[in-house]
Structures are given as structure tokens and as C-alpha cells.
């Protein structure tokens, strides 16, 4: 474990908690894409299959449980909570996210480190995580008005992946056999997807104006 990875995990945890807090306190999911949340629940479900088979550390197991419970809770809130579901704008959240699942799965079948069920599911979860934010970014572009919590949520998600890139660089130089091209390229693609959001987020923060994404 290194400081970049710990900071990345904490930022990732913060992003999920910010979202849960928003939905739980103001009982609203306005501006949140259910599709992105469903994709994240699928990412964790397919990535943490080894939750009970490979014990790595208490931290690792605890964090996996937190991410699984929180991501499925968010999906539950938006779909089934009697008050929250009313604020879900399904007419705007129209990204065909199922079109993301199949290509990621097919790619995982072709490009993976080992052709085993667990490894293919793990690789699938990496590719899916890289594109999971797309429905949310499309929704932000469409609704144009970004409330602070949603902006913070997307910012923290991007920051977590950026910190992970620093973690991979650090591990590459400190651990001789640490080479995971699939993880690195997938993580880089994911971070690049946030780049334009970051740009507008910083612009709005610097000029102290409301965050607006160009149409």
C-alpha cells in the first residue's frame, strides 16, 4: 500500500459517501444518472467475486464490502425509495448503458491476463468502470445545471482514478514485477474521460461561477 493508493481509495470512498449522503438527506437524486450507478454496482459485483475466496487484508475486505453495499444501496434508493424515485428524471437519463456492457465483456474475453472465469470477470469490471461515468456525463451535459454535490461526486471519482495512476507509476518503480498493462490503459482511458469535466470544474471554481458544461 502506498500513499497514492490510500488517497485514491479514500477519495473513491468519499465520492460514494457524498452521493449516499445527498440522496439520504435531501431525499433527492436530481442530476444523478441511475444508469451510471447500475454500471458501478455491476463493476463491483464482477470485480469482488474473490471477496470470500482470497483474503488479502482486513482493509481490502472491508472496503470491498463498503463499495458493494453502498453502490447497491444507491441503486435501490433511486429505483425503489418512494420519495427519492420521484426525483429521478428517466426522460433525461437515456444513455443506452447496456450497449456498454456487451463490448466490455467481449473485450474482456479477448484481452485479459488469464482465461479464467474470475480473471475475465475482473477484466470486464475494469473495462466497464472506464466507461461507467458516460451516462452521468451525458446527463450533466443535458441538464446543464450541476448542483454542487453532483459536481463534487464526479470530481471525486475523477480524482480517485488520477491518484490510482500515480499509484501505478509508484508501484512500477518500486515493485520489479508489477506490470499490469490492462489495468493501466483502462485506468488511463477512464481518467481521460473526466479530463474535460475537470477543465470546466476548475474554470467554474476559479472564476467562482456556477459549473456549466457546454452543450
Amino acid at each position: 500500500m502506498n500513499i497514492f493508493r490510500l488517497a485514491g481509495d479514500m477519495t473513491h470512498l468519499a465520492s460514494v459517501l457524498v452521493l449516499l449522503l445527498k440522496i439520504h438527506t435531501i431525499k433527492s437524486c436530481a442530476g444523478i444518472s441511475l444508469k451510471t450507478q447500475e454500471l458501478y454496482a455491476l463493476v463491483f459485483a464482477t470485480r469482488y467475486l474473490d471477496l470470500f475466496t482470497d483474503y488479502i487484508s482486513l482493509y481490502n475486505t472491508l472496503m470491498k464490502l463498503i463499495f458493494l453495499v453502498s453502490s447497491f444501496s444507491i441503486v435501490w434508493y433511486i429505483r425503489h425509495h418512494k420519495i427519492v424515485r420521484r426525483s429521478y428524471d428517466k426522460d433525461q437519463d437515456t444513455f443506452r448503458h447496456y450497449f456498454l456492457v456487451l463490448p466490455c465483456f467481449l473485450l474482456a474475453l479477448v484481452i485479459n491476463e488469464k482465461f479464467t472465469v474470475k480473471e475475465i470477470m475482473w477484466t470486464f469490471s475494469l473495462y466497464l468502470e472506464a466507461v461507467a461515468i458516460l451516462p452521468q456525463l451525458v446527463l450533466l451535459q443535458r441538464t446543464r445545471n450541476i448542483d454542487n454535490l453532483t459536481g463534487q461526486y464526479v470530481f471525486l471519482l475523477g480524482a480517485y482514478r488520477s491518484l490510482y495512476i500515480l499509484n501505478w507509476i509508484y508501484r512500477y518503480f518500486t515493485e520489479p514485477h508489477y506490470v499490469h498493462w490492462i489495468t493501466w490503459i483502462s485506468g488511463l482511458v477512464q481518467t481521460l474521460l473526466y479530463a474535460d469535466f475537470f477543465y470546466y470544474y476548475f474554470q467554474s471554481w476559479k472564476n467562482n461561477v456556477k459549473l456549466e458544461l457546454p452543450a
Partner: peptide, 10 residues
């Protein structure tokens, strides 16, 4: 046991 192919990152 963290053998070679176990992914130790979240």
C-alpha cells in the same frame, strides 16, 4: 495468500 495472480487493488 496473495499469490501472483491475485489482484490486491480495489
Amino acid at each position: 495468500s496473495v499469490d501472483g495472480d491475485v489482484h490486491d487493488e480495489l
